[in-house]
Amino acid sequence: MADPGFPGQHTTTTTMTSNTTIQTNTRFDPSYIRTWHGILKCAQIVLNLLGFICIEVSGFSFHSRGSYFIFVSMTGFWFTALLLLFYLFHLIEKFYKIPWLKIELVFCALWTLMYLIAACLAATFGVEAYSVAAFFGFCAMVVYGGDAFLKFRAVKGGQLAQGERVINKETTTTARSPAY
């Protein structure tokens, strides 16, 4: 005998709809700087610049360790500054078909490794300016690593680099009792 409190058939239908809102016009929006991603980009730019200045003011900027640190810091500076400008002027949103989050994830992960190498090389050189540059290099490594982690979570979550995606979830449950 069937349990009278439990229906014989039970059907659950879940419908998910996704609505993506993207504005393709170019506009200046300084509010991006107050977001976590904007703060991280500003910190990356400052740390890149400080590390570069420390190596350049030393008397040994021509050394291969210094040249490598300069390459890492200036490439990071220009790439991150360009991305910051793209976000501030909503160019990321204009070219939404480009996988910006994946590009940033790869860049941030690669620059975490590059800064680890550059900072270790600078720290073991034995010159005071290189030691200070190594400190800024290790700080930049941590910031790029944190940004890579946030980008990884965003890619896994299916988020957009810029713009809005609203996901609506609707669940319908239908229960029918068996005919006797």
Rank of each mutant, 00 (worst) to 15 (best):
V106L: 07
M16W: 13
Y87T: 02
A118G: 12
K94D: 05
T80C: 02
V127D: 03
K94H: 07
I98N: 11
L113I: 13
F6Q: 15
S58D: 13
V57A: 11
M16P: 05
F79A: 13
F135W: 05
Y115A: 09
S58R: 14
Y96E: 06
W100Y: 05
I92F: 03
F136Q: 02
S64K: 05
T112V: 09
F6W: 05
C108Q: 03
S61R: 02
K41H: 07
V127F: 06
F28H: 00
G163L: 05
A148E: 02
E104S: 03
L40A: 10
Y115I: 15
M114V: 10
K151Y: 14
R34Q: 13
L50T: 07
F77T: 09
L84T: 00
E56F: 13
L83I: 14
F95G: 11
N168S: 15
T173W: 08
P30W: 07
T35M: 06
W36S: 13
G157L: 03
L40M: 01
C42E: 10
Y32G: 08
R65V: 15
Y130D: 15
T17H: 10
C120H: 00
G38I: 01
A81H: 09
G146A: 11
V132K: 15
C120E: 10
F86Y: 07
M1V: 10
Y68S: 00
E128N: 08
G59V: 09
L150E: 03
G137I: 11
D29I: 12
F95W: 15
F95I: 05
R27L: 08
F69C: 14
T171N: 02
G51Q: 04
S131M: 14
N48V: 06
L113H: 01
V132T: 12
R27W: 02
T14K: 14
C120P: 10
A133C: 07
Y32R: 07
G5T: 01
L105G: 11
M114Q: 03
N168W: 03
F71N: 08
E170M: 09
L105V: 06
V155M: 03
I55G: 04
A119K: 02
S64C: 02
M74N: 09
S61I: 04
W111Q: 05
Y130P: 13
F62D: 03
F77K: 12
F138S: 08
G59S: 00
C42Q: 14
A175P: 05
T13W: 04
I92K: 00
F136M: 08
I33M: 05
F77Y: 14
D29V: 13
I33G: 07
A140N: 14
A43D: 12
Y130I: 12
L91I: 15
F28D: 01
L50A: 06
K102D: 01
A129F: 08
S64Y: 14
E164L: 01
V155T: 05
L85H: 08
I55N: 02
G38T: 01
S18P: 12
R153H: 02
N19T: 01
G137S: 12
A109D: 15
I70F: 04
F107Q: 06
V72D: 13
F138P: 08
L160S: 04
N168A: 07
I22L: 00
I55K: 09
I92L: 04
V106F: 14
M1T: 08
H37Y: 10
T171I: 11
K97H: 13
K169P: 00
K97V: 02
W36F: 13
K97T: 13
